[in-house]
Amino acid sequence: MLRRWMLPILFVAVGIAAAVRQVTKGLPVAAVTLLLLFLLAAVLLSPLVFPRSVSAAEALRRSEADGRPIVYWRPGCRYCLRLRMRLGRHAYRLHWVDIWSDPDGAAAVRAATGGDETVPTVVVAGKPHVNPAPQWVRAQLP
Results as ranks from 00 to 15, higher is better:
residue 131 N to W: 00
residue 67 G to L: 07
residue 15 G to C: 12
residue 90 H to M: 15
residue 60 L to R: 14
residue 19 A to R: 04
residue 8 P to V: 06
residue 138 R to S: 08
residue 27 L to T: 03
residue 53 S to T: 01
residue 110 R to E: 07
residue 86 R to K: 13
residue 64 E to Y: 06
residue 97 V to D: 00
residue 62 R to P: 02
residue 42 A to R: 01
residue 37 L to A: 14
residue 42 A to N: 01
residue 19 A to T: 04
residue 127 K to W: 03
residue 142 P to H: 13
residue 133 A to L: 08
residue 114 G to F: 09
residue 30 A to N: 04
residue 24 T to C: 12
residue 44 L to F: 09
residue 107 A to C: 06
residue 108 A to Y: 09
residue 83 L to V: 00
residue 130 V to T: 14
residue 78 R to E: 02
residue 72 Y to V: 01
residue 34 L to K: 03
residue 62 R to W: 00
residue 80 C to Y: 08
residue 63 S to H: 12
residue 99 I to A: 04
residue 107 A to N: 04
residue 104 D to A: 10
residue 14 V to N: 04
residue 129 H to A: 12
residue 141 L to C: 14
residue 107 A to Q: 07
residue 73 W to N: 02
residue 141 L to H: 13
residue 93 R to Y: 02
residue 28 P to K: 09
residue 66 D to F: 10
residue 103 P to M: 06
residue 68 R to E: 04
residue 129 H to T: 12
residue 119 V to H: 08
residue 50 F to S: 14
residue 114 G to R: 03
residue 92 Y to F: 15
residue 120 P to N: 07
residue 92 Y to Q: 13
residue 14 V to F: 07
residue 138 R to A: 13
residue 108 A to D: 12
residue 63 S to V: 04
residue 60 L to C: 14
residue 16 I to S: 05
residue 124 V to F: 01
residue 123 V to L: 00
residue 46 S to Q: 15
residue 3 R to V: 11
residue 110 R to S: 14
residue 113 T to L: 06
residue 96 W to C: 09
residue 64 E to R: 15
residue 50 F to H: 13
residue 61 R to L: 07
residue 104 D to H: 08
residue 65 A to T: 09
residue 101 S to V: 10
residue 113 T to S: 12
residue 103 P to N: 08
residue 57 A to R: 15
residue 100 W to Y: 15
residue 40 L to V: 06
residue 103 P to K: 09
residue 2 L to R: 09
residue 8 P to W: 12
residue 100 W to V: 10
residue 135 Q to P: 02
residue 1 M to S: 15
residue 46 S to F: 15
residue 76 G to H: 01
residue 86 R to D: 11
residue 107 A to M: 10
residue 81 L to D: 02
residue 127 K to I: 11
residue 62 R to C: 02
residue 40 L to A: 11
residue 132 P to S: 04
residue 59 A to S: 13
residue 41 A to Y: 06
residue 32 V to G: 10
residue 120 P to C: 13
residue 21 R to V: 12
residue 113 T to N: 12
residue 123 V to G: 00
residue 23 V to R: 03
residue 95 H to E: 04
residue 138 R to I: 03
residue 104 D to R: 13
residue 74 R to N: 02
residue 30 A to E: 03
residue 106 A to T: 07
residue 118 T to N: 03
residue 32 V to S: 14
residue 3 R to M: 08
residue 138 R to G: 03
residue 30 A to F: 06
residue 94 L to N: 00
residue 73 W to A: 03
residue 3 R to T: 09
residue 2 L to S: 09
residue 88 G to Q: 02
residue 85 M to A: 11
residue 73 W to I: 04
residue 53 S to I: 00
residue 58 E to I: 11
residue 11 F to V: 07
residue 101 S to L: 14
residue 19 A to M: 12
residue 112 A to Q: 07
residue 121 T to N: 05
residue 70 I to P: 01
residue 50 F to W: 09
residue 80 C to I: 15
residue 135 Q to D: 02
residue 55 S to G: 14
residue 123 V to A: 00
residue 54 V to W: 00
residue 99 I to R: 02
residue 1 M to H: 08
residue 99 I to D: 05
residue 127 K to M: 05
residue 131 N to V: 00
residue 28 P to H: 11
residue 84 R to T: 05
residue 125 A to P: 03
residue 125 A to Y: 06
residue 22 Q to K: 13
residue 114 G to N: 06
residue 127 K to F: 10
residue 24 T to G: 05
residue 111 A to M: 05
